[in-house]
Design a protein around this nucleic acid. Structure first.
Lengths: 209, 209
DNA sequence: AATAGTGGATAGCGACGCTATCTAACAGGG
DNA sequence: CCCTGTTAGATAGCGTCGCTATCCACTATT
């Protein structure tokens, strides 16, 4: 398959594919000569993945580079899988934030883990991210009491039960990782939207006249 | 209070404040002459709101303009409140998406509402958004079965119970609206992060060796 | 031999969120 | 009443991002 065909199959312009090649998001095709290369199904799939991550997940080019790098070097054990997925999806700390209390940050995440009572690493991406957004919310005047955290935590836990499907253990590592990453990227907005709809339902029952 | 003071109070540069004024995000100060205006606490609060929406919620300038417009003209009834909040926070449909099946979109949202069995409008922003992301997820190869939707829906519902607090009914309309919008913007990432941590907890229990 | 397509390099573009500069008006202190 | 400094308002520019377009030298196909 030549590049024009790859472009056709994925509905992505040739110029953009070249850009992805340049940026290292797409692995090079098999060189057939100085000015010719062959692309295969792995390229089609990779391009689709890139487009999904960018347009649905809103990931930056840099971030997608991290994702594909992780896919090419998947973690050794199943348990590291989600951690890797979370690492590459974790939002960058905003440079506009004050960072003068990083110690508090560590304290906070440790306290959160204790409050939730879960067997998780207080230094993992996910935990740090949680501490991060809670801190930011506090700065924005929205305090999140422990009580609510525990309540939400129990619900998040139930959702996670369905996320961490047992079949993850039977897949090849790279495929499982991609499944975890894409699943996270795609289902985050579903949950957000679902919450909105649920809010309207509750509002309709409580406040409709 | 003059503009330099407003800049100092909010730690936002004067040039940026002028930009916000130009863009209609910040209401003008009371003109004291051709080259002087007075700003008050409403301006300080408004600037803080704008910064929160942009840096935490990742909202665009256009979107923030919608938010402040809604705040200046709050809905008449309490029930319209969340709908208004959801309207202004709803992500723009991506122009890269196929839109040749808008009828299916309507069908889908109607079916979703039926599946969930909630008293919500199938044409509301929230419902449309849900149909939107589910459709996109399907295109990305991630099918969301009804069973999972109902399960997640029940959990989303529980979260929403705490979101739609009874005190919303006692607040002034503009304040309640701002609370709803900021609350949504700030707590969305908390839920997302909490889900990540929960996933790691489940993974640790199921897959740790 | 003509054509169409290729890899590779480089430059430009349009949107976004500011940021910097300029000007004319004005205010307060001495 | 002048001097210094600030302000509003207008306009232009900047840095990043995600492409997009153009050019070139080359090569496989017709």
């Amino acid at each position: 398959m030549q590049m024009s065909m790859l472009a056709q199959r994925t509905t992505v312009p040739v110029a953009t594919l070249k850009y992805y090649l340049r940026e290292g998001l797409l692995h090079p095709g098999e060189a057939l000569g100085a000015t010719r290369a062959a692309y295969d199904e792995t390229h089609v799939e990779r391009v689709r993945l890139i487009r999904t991550l960018i347009t649905v997940g809103g990931l930056s080019i840099d971030r997608v580079r991290l994702v594909v790098a992780a896919l090419d070097r998947p973690p050794a054990t199943r348990h590291e899988l989600l951690a890797t997925a979370h690492d590459v999806l974790r939002p960058l700390p905003r440079h506009t934030d004050r960072v003068d209390d990083t110690t508090n940050q560590d304290d906070l995440s440790a306290r959160l883990v204790e409050t939730l009572g879960w067997p998780v690493d207080p230094h993992s991406s996910a935990t740090q991210q949680l501490a991060d957004v809670i801190q930011t919310a506090r700065q924005g005047g929205w305090d999140c009491p422990d009580e609510m955290l525990v309540h939400w935590g129990a619900l998040a836990r139930e959702i996670a039960e369905t996320d961490v499907s047992p079949e993850l253990g039977t897949m090849p590592a790279a495929e499982a990782l991609q499944h975890a990453i894409v699943g996270t990227v795609l289902t985050d907005p579903i949950l957000i939207a679902l919450r909105r709809v649920a809010q309207e339902a509750v509002s309709a029952e409580r406040l409709a006249h």
